[in-house]
């Protein structure tokens, strides 16, 4: 198990390899469909994403005794941000993207070129992941985007993920898709007409 701790420098990110199991400690920002499109449309993000981590997540957040508390926070499907992610990595210097289901070629190439990784959280594991979120530091765009789509600034500790796209051009998604496709062709050839 590799510990990835803030600050998330390019060196630390480049040292990660596809398939590594990692625990993250530091600050991450949630951002999903509305925020990605909004930034892509030319709006400046309200926080600095330099050496930052974006988490594709629409958390359930409630106010308890005047403080925001995350009660469920699993990843959402990342591929919807594929049109926007590479541009945001390049322009704002993102170092990691957390999500689920993987991303496509544009993102893979941007990760390699600018030193970023895609980290896969376990989809559906809303409670385990919420436990790793120790504090909601602040929130941006709550009115504008609504709670699930807002930018939540979260302090996480030992947040569990797997590197599935590294900064060296490798993508576990691409590799498994290729190997399973080969296996499927083999199975198809044995299915009688």
């Amino acid at each position: 198990m590799i510990q990835l701790q803030a600050p998330f420098t390019e060196d630390k990110i480049r040292a990660l390899k596809t398939g590594d199991m990692v625990e993250i400690t530091g600050v991450v920002f949630t951002g999903r469909d509305a925020v990605h499109k909004w930034i892509h449309d030319g709006n400046e993000p309200p926080v600095s994403l330099k050496d930052g981590i974006i988490y594709h997540c629409g958390p359930v957040v409630v106010k308890q005794e005047g403080k925001w508390v995350v009660t469920a926070a699993g990843p959402t499907t990342s591929i919807r941000e594929e049109p926007y992610q590479a541009g945001i990595i390049e322009k704002y210097g993102l170092r990691a993207v957390i999500g689920k289901g993987g991303m496509g070629e544009k993102t893979r190439l941007a990760c390699a070129k600018f030193g970023c990784v895609y980290l896969h959280a376990v989809g559906g594991a809303a409670q385990v992941l919420a436990e790793a979120i120790k504090e909601v530091e602040t929130v941006y765009g709550l009115e504008q985007f609504g709670s699930p789509e807002a930018i939540w600034q979260l302090r996480v500790e030992k947040f569990p993920v797997v590197v599935t796209i590294d900064a060296h051009g490798r993508s576990l998604h691409k590799e498994i898709e290729a190997s399973s496709s080969e296996k499927l062709a083999e199975i198809f050839s044995t299915i009688k007409k």
């Binding site: 997540c57 629409g58 958390p59 359930v60 009660t71 469920a72 926070a73 699993g74 959402t76 989809g123 559906g124 594991a125 809303a126 409670q127 385990v128 919420a130 436990e131």
Partner: peptide, 12 residues
């Protein structure tokens, strides 16, 4: 964890 906390298993 979800069962013990009586919280949604998945946020979706």
């Amino acid at each position: 964890l979800a069962k013990v906390k009586s919280q949604p298993l998945c946020q979706d």
